[in-house]
């Protein structure tokens, strides 16, 4: 049984078809990447999965529940977590409070007390290694630190599916390698499916994902295991006829 099924989903903004009849599945505990050039509709796809706005057509089924019409917060309760392309921690709240908020209201939320959520937050602060910033407002962190706080906040939600929008954009190769290792590690320790969205950084895709979905102009171009996808001529075509490795961001 699949964790998430996307069936013929379409989203239009005025005349623009941002997501065009997409269908794919995500399995439990899988590490998957969605790639595609700028404006391909990746972020829009994420927004549709976690309910930032509803789909115009098609269905989204999460663990046998049809969530197509569910508001975002209900999908979060079912276990869909999310990080943003540009990190959006709650600026005035401390790092600890940010992460605790994920615990309090996410999938684990209904049973968790505030104090328990704070303990959970401490646990994830250790994992992301931001102990010395624990009681500082998240607004004052560096971009990379903010990204880590966002990931921890999403993990504290105890999701079964974690959507990471551009977890590695703007990072240097060393940071990327660390981030890839970190994502693989949390997949193993938390036992959750992670869909990471990557723009051009093929190096990361190769190390990270077991399966790749390539989007192009809103539609699904390729859905294949990573190695095959990276050598697929259609994928190379999309990246301006260059071999993907050279289209490095």
């Amino acid at each position: 049984m699949s964790l998430l099924r996307v069936e013929n989903v379409t989203k239009r903004f005025g005349g623009l078809v941002a997501v065009d009849d997409m269908s794919f599945e995500i399995r439990h505990g899988e590490l998957m990447a969605i790639v595609g050039p700028n404006g391909a509709g990746k972020t829009t796809m994420f927004n549709l999965i976690n309910g930032v706005f509803p789909a115009d057509e098609g269905r989204i089924i999460f663990e046998d529940v049809d969530v197509t019409r569910y508001p975002a917060y209900k999908r979060a309760h079912l276990g869909i977590g999310r990080t943003f392309q540009i990190p959006r921690p709650f600026a005035s709240a401390t790092v600890r409070e940010n992460i605790a908020i994920g615990g309090m209201f996410g999938a684990a939320g209904s049973e968790i007390s505030v104090d328990r959520a704070m303990e959970l937050a401490d646990h994830y602060i250790d994992i992301i290694g931001l102990k010395e910033h624990r009681d500082k407002p998240a607004g004052g962190l560096t971009p990379v630190e903010k990204k880590l706080v966002e990931i921890a906040r999403a993990l504290a939600m105890k999701p079964r599916l974690l959507l990471m929008d551009e977890a590695m954009a703007g990072m240097n190769p060393k940071d990327i390698d660390e981030m890839v290792a970190f994502i693989r590690e949390i997949r193993d320790t938390e036992g959750i499916a992670i869909v990471s969205m990557v723009e051009h950084i093929m190096r990361a895709v190769a190390g990270l994902a077991e399966r790749v979905i390539v989007m192009h102009q809103g539609a699904l171009l390729v859905d294949e295991p990573t190695q095959e996808a990276l050598s697929d001529p259609r994928v190379i075509e999309v990246y301006l006829g260059q071999p993907p490795e050279e289209a490095h961001a």
Partner: peptide, 15 residues
């Protein structure tokens, strides 16, 4: 606090 800072992010957190 969460919704004051960022309402969309708050929704996604399950609020």
């Amino acid at each position: 606090t969460a919704l004051r800072e960022d309402e969309d992010a708050a929704k996604v957190m399950g609020i």
